[in-house]
Computed example of a mutant assay.
Amino acid sequence: MTVLVTTGVYKSFGNHEVLKGIDFRVAPGEFAAIFAPSGSGKTTLLNILATVLKPDKGDVRINGKSVLKISENELNALRRDYIGYAHQSCKMVNSLTLADNLALPLLIKGAPKSESVRAANEIAGKLGLTSRLGKYPFQLSFGERKRAVIAMALCKKPRLAIIDEPTANLDDSNGRVVLELLDEFRKGNDAAVVVATHDERVREYADRVYFLHEGGLHADAE
């Protein structure tokens, strides 16, 4: 079964048609990269894939279910248990330390505190954040917050991880660490990973590459 399928997805804001008939799918264990220039609608597309926005037309099916036809409770459960979404805005809970922010998605999912803390410590170590666990978001650099929100998305081991600009504002070394982690995550958990990016290094890891241009999503011909 595919993890995510969109069929004929359209989205407009006012008179501006941003997405024009998007067909897309990603399977378990697959890494899909979407290359998109600024202003192309990539954040709108990712928000629809992550169920934050609803399309005007078309369908989005996650884990075999149309997200347009399930109840709000079922949709919330899908977001909580099945989807990990790292926004480019790097939103975190300002009143919580990095350690607590990392553990939060697992606690919301219902995992025991000991398991949540252990998982948070493990992923922090992989992303070079162990020494920052006691810090609050305002005490972290943008690059550290970027790695933190990716860690939050992956910590609960979602079946679908959606990452907006995973290497943006990271130096070459930390960018590579993030890409290696995403690759390890999808292989180790048979999870689907979808990223929107400008970084050509992502091609080394992606099974499929797409371009978002003038509202359409086009597969790379290579």
Rank of each mutant, 00 (worst) to 15 (best):
E214H: 15
R25V: 14
V9A: 10
D23A: 11
Y85N: 07
I150S: 04
G125L: 04
C90W: 00
R201Q: 11
T43K: 00
K20R: 14
I62M: 10
G64A: 10
S38H: 08
G84I: 00
R61E: 13
K146G: 07
F35P: 01
V149T: 04
Y210I: 12
D56Q: 08
D171Y: 03
L170V: 02
A196Y: 05
T97D: 06
L182C: 03
R79P: 09
I150P: 02
H213E: 15
K109N: 07
D220Y: 13
L98P: 03
K69T: 12
A103G: 06
I123A: 06
R80H: 14
K109E: 02
A168P: 10
R79N: 06
D23Q: 12
G8T: 10
V3D: 07
I162F: 00
K126L: 10
A153E: 04
F211Y: 15
H213S: 14
E214T: 14
F35G: 07
T197Q: 01
I48E: 02
K91S: 12
M1H: 15
L181N: 08
V67N: 07
R61A: 12
Y10I: 06
P55W: 00
L170D: 00
T97G: 07
V60I: 07
G41I: 04
G58D: 09
A119L: 06
K11F: 01
T7P: 14
I62F: 09
G128W: 11
G215F: 04
Y85W: 04
